[in-house]
């Protein structure tokens, strides 16, 4: 006891210190990364880079010899279209699954579903990209008689499958957090199962559900590998879901290796990084605030 006790008095402060360092370093890393990306990207802004053109022109010709143009609009449209389609699929699907798991499943079935969902979340994105490149590609070509299956549709479906686990698990958590006494109260008043869901659970859990959706979107916007492989690599504003596109993230991944360090091209790619960083930061912040209930009132 006494030896154990003395050991503890020595080791505990050390362990505490280590944990503290881990925590601090996580914060330092985040700021370090942001600083690094921002420094590389902002250098360009100080040299008179046209930010308006960057955000509004669809002309992305970083390799043109005579006239290099860095308009990211088509890339923004690529990210937006794939993410929107993904959310149009994943939100109803994910929320539906969350409701099903939390309200209609027996405890045993619920555990099974949660394990499956976790497995789904654990699939590496390159594997998803693979599925997009092979299976989905052929499926789209045969189903729609399209010349190529690497399209907004392909990327959107893949991304939806990747976002669903996020939406389901956070959505299910927030439904589970609704006190059972609310369900009981409504049931004792004669509400049917659907009325309980529609009139009690959804309003009571709406903050958590909204956060689930936002985090799903953030997942979609930030995803690189899978959409790079599934969307066909064409820099253009899509007119239908059967057009190929390229997203912001895919552009960075595809071009950064070839752009000479500190060249304009290189720095524009970092600027895209800043843009992505900002978007996900605000989405995550919004989700956080909503979860904490500051969104209320």
């Amino acid at each position: 006891m006494s030896l154990r006790h003395r050991l503890d008095t020595v080791t505990e402060p050390i362990i505490e210190r280590i944990i503290q360092l881990c925590g601090i370093s996580a914060i330092v890393f985040v700021f370090g990364i942001f600083f690094f990306v921002f420094r590389e990207g902002s250098d360009l802004l100080f040299r008179g880079f046209d930010l308006v053109e960057f955000l509004t022109s669809p002309q992305w010709y970083p390799d043109s010899v005579g006239h290099k143009r860095y308009g990211a609009l088509a890339l923004i449209a690529g990210t937006t279209s794939v993410t929107l389609l993904a959310m149009a699929i994943a939100v109803p699907f994910g929320l539906g699954a969350a409701i099903f798991i939390s309200e209609f499943c027996s405890p045993k079935l619920r555990e099974t579903f949660k394990i499956v969902i976790e497995l789904l979340a654990a699939i590496p994105s390159v594997v998803w990209g693979f599925i997009g490149l092979t299976l989905m590609n052929e499926l789209i070509i045969t189903l729609f008689d399209a010349p190529i299956g690497l399209t907004v549709l392909n990327g959107g479906v893949i991304l939806a499958l990747m976002s669903v686990p996020v939406i389901v698990s956070i959505g299910e958590d927030s439904l589970k957090a609704v006190p059972d006494s609310y369900r009981e109260a409504a049931e004792a008043l004669g509400a049917t199962r659907w009325q309980i869901i529609y009139r009690v659970l959804l309003p009571a859990a709406k903050n958590g559900l909204l956060a689930a959706v936002l985090l799903g979107i953030a997942r979609g916007i930030g995803e690189t590998m899978a959409v790079l492989m599934a969307t066909g690599h064409a820099v253009k504003i899509p007119h239908s879901v059967l057009d190929s596109v390229r997203t912001l993230t895919a552009t960075i991944a595809a071009e950064l290796g070839e752009a000479p360090v500190h060249s304009d091209h290189y720095q524009v790619l970092f600027l895209i990084g800043v843009l992505l960083f900002t978007i996900s930061f605000f989405i995550n912040l919004a989700a956080d605030l909503i979860i904490k209930g500051i969104g209320r009132k």
């Binding site: 006190p179 006494s181 009981e184 109260a185 004792a188 008043l189 009690v200 009571a204």
Partner: peptide
Amino acid sequence: GMVFQRPNPLP
């Protein structure tokens, strides 16, 4: 109708 031990108005 039923009234419970802990008041349970809906949110």
